[in-house]
């Protein structure tokens, strides 16, 4: 069960590349686990290590000491494209990321992120350009992401509102997940099932 999440203040890591797919975020060979352990090390693994397993020279941004502990990403459009693997948000969360700003997210990634209290925050292309310039000019500036107020605050004190799925917001603020909510609707599910006989029986011999 996730912990409640309300707001965070952190420096930002910018990755100015579009279409970062979930194979980059967490390569498939790390999907052989049967739990969620060790995924922080898998994050962006092939960007950090050569195919023969040596740390790249110079080290990837993710391994630069000054980026350790940063909780906010600023990334190009369509982040999280491709595979539905929830290992991608698990790896981001395990590494410490709590919020991601982009002009767009792939649908499945966005849903998976919200279920793990990782905030996918969509901004306009103009806002993205401004944020990128701001982060480049002040790479160690601290930004605040406030889920409760649905507001981001920048180092210069400027702030802007962001949209987020209102239902997911409630779940994340409360530190709960959706299964309890759906199970509280079991009578409606039972009524639907009674009116709609199963289309297949996979257990049929």
């Amino acid at each position: 069960m996730p912990e409640p999440f309300v707001r965070t203040t952190s420096r930002v890591i910018a990755i100015p590349r579009a279409n970062i797919d979930t194979d980059q975020i967490c390569p498939a060979r790390f999907l052989k686990i049967t739990d969620k352990a060790g995924l922080a090390d898998a994050l962006f693994f092939d960007w950090r290590f050569t195919p023969d397993g040596k740390r790249r020279e110079p080290v990837s941004f993710i391994d630069e000491p000054h980026n350790a502990g940063r909780q906010i990403l600023l990334v190009g459009d369509n982040f999280g494209a491709g595979s539905s693997r929830e290992h991608a948000p698990w790896a981001l969360r395990a590494w410490g990321i709590r919020a991601i700003f982009s002009t767009g997210f792939a649908d499945i990634f966005r849903g998976n992120a919200l279920k793990n209290a990782l905030l996918p925050i969509v901004v306009t292309p103009d806002r993205y350009a401004a944020l990128t310039a701001l982060q480049a000019a002040d790479p160690d500036g601290e930004w605040t992401v406030d889920l409760e107020a649905q507001k981001a605050t920048l180092p210069d004190g400027e702030s802007f509102a962001f949209e987020i799925d209102p239902f997911a917001r409630k779940m994340i603020l409360a530190g709960t997940d959706e299964i309890g909510y759906v199970r509280s609707n079991l009578p409606a599910i039972e009524a639907w099932e009674a009116a709609h006989p199963a289309r297949v029986d996979t257990a049929r011999a």
Partner: peptide
């Protein structure tokens, strides 16, 4: 396609929470 949290949801309830695309 769905993520693992949603797999658990479907296993538990045979339903999913979805916004209409």
């Amino acid at each position: 396609g769905i993520g693992t949290s949603e797999i658990e949801m479907v296993l538990a309830t045979q339903t999913l929470l979805q916004r209409k695309p």
